[in-house]
Amino acid sequence: MRTFNYRRRKLTDQVMRGLSALATGCAIIPLIAIIGYVLTIGAGAMSWSFFSDVYQPPSSAPEPTADKPAPAYDPNDPFADISVAPIDAAGNVDPTVSVYNAAPRGGVLHGILGTLTIAGIGLLFALPIGIFAGIYLSEFRNERYATIVRFCCDVLSGSPSIVAGVTIYVLVVLQAKQFSAVAGSMALAILMIPIVTRTTEEMLKLVPETMREAARGLGAPVWYSTLTVVLPAALPGIVTGVMLAFARGAGETAPLILTVLGSNVISMDIFKPMAALPLLTYRYTESPYPGENTQAWGAAFVLMMLVLLMNILVRVATRKAGGNSR
């Protein structure tokens, strides 16, 4: 009897363990598939100029070199600037070098700078509001008000991002009669605030009550102990939340279509349209040129790497700040 029970228990344990492992595997398959696919195809777009250059229209003309300079401009040729396919002596277009299967040209530097600017300004809007709201919910709460705010935050963080885009489109873009990067930042801030607020609140609640008591026992007012003791203790967690918010903002496409519009050049005027990596991905995906389709994957890859890099940088920075005494 004893042996039977023991065996059954062992077996149940193994079955349950196997099922959990299988489910875990299923959960990470999409992640690995996406990263792998983006990496494989996006790698085709990678070159130095992809990071250092801005948009170039597709062209089959060879890149000018020292011994083969670009042909002189011919005013009679309507296509001279862009895409004259080489024509052989018989006057036939060589299909192998037509515009449609030309190699990718240009890069996404304008998109990288645009995304950093738009998401960065969005974070500047969202950080103070989100962190102070989180502090209020955790440290100074007035239960009824806090419940309402918490509920609104959860609804907002679950709502589709296009809603934020439409709202800013109506309230800002239409009023100013101008698409602009700063309008995009506002739309992203709407999406970032609930994330920052809720993470800040949760992380502050994890700080042991004894820390607050110690500060209170030394005659510190609540605001002082929050800033000097509670907030620093919760900082690593809050930073994670902030990075999550940045990643969410940097990856959003829908609100940007309605607010920043996009651009083909490097523009640092935040009151004018600007490029952004998700917008480039979106537009290049729809492009009829295979070279630009490849670049869409490349832009997606760069976006992923950008978020990852920011994450690592901020983590290293906060760990250093936490490891040293003042």
Partner: peptide, 19 residues
């Protein structure tokens, strides 16, 4: 707050700050 500046407190579990 002013009262606690006159009456300090030491707790059951040592609770130094992360400083």
């Amino acid at each position: 707050v002013l009262l606690r500046r006159r009456v300090g407190m030491v707790f059951q579990r040592p609770n130094p700050f992360q400083l």
